[in-house]
Write a protein that binds this DNA or RNA. Structure first.
Lengths: 103, 103
DNA sequence: CCATAAGTTCGATGGATGTCGTACAATCAA
DNA sequence: TTGATTGTACGACATCCATCGAACTTATGG
C-alpha cells in the first residue's frame, strides 16, 4: 500500500513545526531544498539506524513536509514546497534561511 | 531568584519551533502579539491548571520566545519580537499569519 | 533462483512532555 | 496580622518520542 500524504488543506501548523523542531529532520529538509531534485532516503549519511531514518521520514511525510514516491527498490523524497508556501507563506523560507547546525 | 532568559544569540531554532508546536503555547504567543502590551499570566482563560500554565510559560521563556517580569504579585509576559525578528527574520510573522485554531 | 540492496515493521527502552493536585512563597489590601 | 491573589515547586502519571536491533518485504541483477 502507498504511504499516506495529507492533502494540502489538511496540513497543520503544529505538526509542521513539530516535524521541523528536530535537528535531524530540519537538516533533511535543508538538503532537500538545496538539491531541488528528488533524493533517495539513504543518501543523507546520518549516523542513525535505518529504522530511525524511516521514523523521521514518516514524521515529515505525515506532517505534509515531504513527498515520498517509490522508484524501484529506492524511495525518492522531495520537499512539498508549493503546498507549504501556499498554506504557510514565508514559513519555510524563514526556517531555512537561519544558519545550519551540525548534525 | 529571577528566572533565566536566554540571550538573543543563544536562542535556538529547534527550541523555538518546539515551543511553538504546542497549540496552547502558540495561542499564548498569538494573543501576546495582538495586544502588544505586557500581560499577566493568568489572563488567558485556558481550561488548564495553574501548574500547567507555569510549565508552558517556562517552556516559552527558556526557548527565548517570551520575557517575564515580576510586577507585584503578578508577572507580566511580553513577546520578544525584536530578538526573534533579528535572529530568525520572518519566522514569527509566518507563524502568526496562519489561521488560528481553537484551543 | 539466489543474493544483494533499500526500506519497513515490530517490539523494546530510556528520556522528554503535558497534565494534574497539593503544598509553598511572595505580594498587596483590609 | 490576616486573608486573598498569583504564581512556583514538587511529585506523580500516562503518553509520546528518538533511538536501536532483528526480522521482514520488495525490487534488481547476476
Amino acid at each position: 500500500m502507498e504511504p499516506h500524504h495529507p492533502d494540502r488543506s489538511e496540513i497543520e501548523l503544529s505538526a509542521v513545526l513539530h516535524a521541523l523542531s528536530d535537528p535531524h529532520r530540519l537538516e533533511i529538509v535543508r538538503r532537500l531544498d538545496q538539491d531541488s531534485e528528488p533524493r533517495a532516503c539513504g543518501t543523507f549519511g546520518f549516523d542513525l539506524s535505518k529504522s530511525t531514518m524511516t521514523h523521521h521520514f514518516r514524521t515529515l511525510r505525515e506532517a505534509g513536509v515531504i513527498r515520498q514516491e517509490r522508484e524501484g527498490t529506492t524511495k525518492l523524497t522531495s520537499l512539498r514546497r508549493e503546498d507549504l508556501d501556499a498554506r504557510f507563506p514565508g514559513l519555510l523560507d524563514a526556517v531555512l534561511s537561519s544558519e545550519p547546525v551540525a548534525v
